[in-house]
Write a protein that binds this DNA or RNA. Sequence first.
DNA 1: GCCACATATGACAACGTTGTCAATTGTTAA
DNA 2: TTAACAATTGACAACGTTGTCATATGTGGC
Lengths: 336, 336
Amino acid sequence: MTTTIKDVALQAGCSIKTVSRVINNEPFVSVQTREKVLQAIETLDYAPNFSARRLVTRKSFTIGILLHEAGFYQSAILSKMMDISYQHDYDILLQSYFPSHNRSRVKLAQLIHERRVDGLVVTPPCDVDPFLRQLLASADIPQAQITPLNRSRQTAFVSGDDYQGAFLMTEHLINLGHNRIAYLTGPRNHRMSIDRLYGYRAALDTYAIPQDRNLVLDSEFTFAGGYTAAKIMLFSDTPPSAIFAGSDDAALGALFAAQELGWKVPEQLSICGFNDLPQAQQTWPGLTTVSHPISDIVEKATFMLLEILSGRPVKDKQIILPSKLIIRKSTGRVFE
Amino acid sequence: MTTTIKDVALQAGCSIKTVSRVINNEPFVSVQTREKVLQAIETLDYAPNFSARRLVTRKSFTIGILLHEAGFYQSAILSKMMDISYQHDYDILLQSYFPSHNRSRVKLAQLIHERRVDGLVVTPPCDVDPFLRQLLASADIPQAQITPLNRSRQTAFVSGDDYQGAFLMTEHLINLGHNRIAYLTGPRNHRMSIDRLYGYRAALDTYAIPQDRNLVLDSEFTFAGGYTAAKIMLFSDTPPSAIFAGSDDAALGALFAAQELGWKVPEQLSICGFNDLPQAQQTWPGLTTVSHPISDIVEKATFMLLEILSGRPVKDKQIILPSKLIIRKSTGRVFE
DNA sequence: GCCACATATGACAACGTTGTCAATTGTTAA
DNA sequence: TTAACAATTGACAACGTTGTCATATGTGGC
C-alpha cells in the first residue's frame, strides 16, 4: 500500500487540503503547518499520485514528440528535448508516426483526444504526410514544429535558413574556382530540399555562372542516394569539379563513392553537404558543410511550446535561424 | 467538454459499467448491447480517459526508458522499442539519467514511486552509476537491462557476447598474419570493455602469440578516445600492424588519425572495431567490426519486460546473444 | 469594543474510470 | 414445474488528487 495524501494529513495533523496546498506551493499556509507537513512528507516518503492529479487538473505534464524514424538527426533532437524537459519537470512521451499508415494516425488521434500529452513537438519528416498535417491543423492541441515542410500554416515552428545556407556554400565553392558545381537534391516535396536548390541557383546567378540542368540530380537525402547520384555524376563525360549534396548523409555517400572510384578529395573533386552531423567531422577528409543549428532549433521550439502551455503569450511563433558555413577538408581549389 | 463514459451510457441506453465492459472486452455482454455501445462510441467519438483509468487500475501502460546520452546506439534502441511498444499499445516515456547527478536520482525515484511507468528498460551506460544500481535493485518495479554493466544481479537482461566477439576479431587478424595487434580498451569499470579485452587475450594465447603490455592502451569508447590512442600507437617506435578498437566510435577515431597521418588502411595498417554501427559501413574503407545485434537485443529485452508486466512467467531472464564477424575493407594481410 | 478584511484551515464534491456485489433474466436438468 | 445455475446488467463505492466554498482566526483602524 502506497502512502497517500491522507496518510500525510494524518501524520501532520491537518486536512488533506492543507497538504495539497503545501505540495502545490499555494499561499495561505502558516509556516508552522507547512513545516509539519513537509516533515510528514519526508517521514512517510510520500509522493503525489500523478494519475489522480492529472485526472482532476486535466493536464498530463507530458510533452509528446512525434518521430518518423530514429536516426542521428532525431537523436540530436531527443537529446536536447530531454535536457529542457528535465529542467521544467515535464515528461517526454515518444510517439512514432508512420506516414500513410492508418493505425498510426488513429493512435495519434487518440493520444491527442485523450490528452495524454499537453503539447506536441513534431519532427521532420513526419509532416510530409498530408493526413498528419490535416490532423494536426484540426487538433486542438498546442504544438511546435521543427523545420516543418510547410510554413504557411499558423502553427509555431523553428527552422534553419536553408536558402541562405545553400547560397553560402555555393558561394564558397565558386570562390575556390569551381564553375561546374553539381547539386544533389532531396525529395521534391520537401520544402528544405527546394529552398536549398534555390539558394544554390541564386548563388550561381549572382556570380553569373550559367546553370546546367545536367548538374542538378534528383536524389534522396540518404547515404545510398548520395552514393548512387555521385557515381552517375562521376561516370559522365563531363564530370563536375564539385558536388554539393543537399544533406550530409548524401554527401557522405558521395564521398564514399568518390573514394571507392579512386578520386582524390579534395584535390580532384570537392564534396560538401548540409547539416553538420557529427559524422561530418569524423570522416576523412572532414566534410565541409552548413551548420544547421539543431540544438538551438530544438531548444527554441521546446521552450516555445512550454511557454504556450503555461499560457504566457509568445511573441514570435515562427523563427528561422541563420545558417553558418563549416569549412573542413573536403573542399579545395580547383586543380587543373 | 469532452465526452465521457456517462455520455456513451446515456446514448446507448445502458449503465456506465456496461460501457466499461465493452471497452475492456469483458465477457457477459449480449451481442445487441455491445453493438449499441459500439455504435454510441462511434457516434460520440468517445475515447476513455487515461488518467482516470490509470488511477483506478494502478497501471500506467507506459514503459520508461532510462537513457544517459542520446547517441547512435541509443537511437537504435529507441527505434526498436518504438516499434514494439507501438504493436503492444504501450507508451514510451523517456527518462534521462545523469550518473552521480542528485536531481536525476530523485526524479527517477519519483517516477518509480509514483508508478508513472509500469516497467523500465535500462540502457548502457546508465548503470555504471552505483547509486542507480542500488536504486534499481531496491525498487519494486519490473525492469529489463540492455547489455548491463553487472550481470550478477537477479534482474532480467539481454546482452551481446563481448568475449566471443573480441576473440573472433582477434583470430581474424591473426589469420591475416598480424602478430602485433594493439587493443584499445574502454573504461575499466565497463564489463563489456573488460570482456572484450579478455576475448582479445584469449585469442592471442590460443595462437601462442606473446602478450605485449604496450599494445594494450586504456582509452575511451569514443571517437576522440580512439583518435588520441591511435596517434600514441602510431608514433611509437614499434607501431602495431593492426589496431583493434573496443568500439566502432574509437575505431573511427583511429581510422581518422591514421588517414590524417598518411597511413594507408589496410595496406599499412589494419583497423577494426566493435558494434557495427551504421557509420562502420559508411566510411572509407568500410570498417571491419563485430556485429552487436542491438536490434535483436532490444526486441528481446522489451518483449521480456512486456511478458513480466503481463504476469506471464519468463523462462529465460538472462540472455546473451552470439556475436558475428563483419569483414569489410579496413583489415587486410600484413604487408612486409 | 467592534467592524472590515486578510490569513489560515477544513468538509465535501468533483474528476472519469474500474471493481464489487447484488439483482434480474434466461436456460438447463431433474 | 422447479431448483440450480449461467448469463446479463446496474447501483454504488472506490481510486487520490484538486477546486469550491464555508468557517474559523488573527489584525488593524476607528
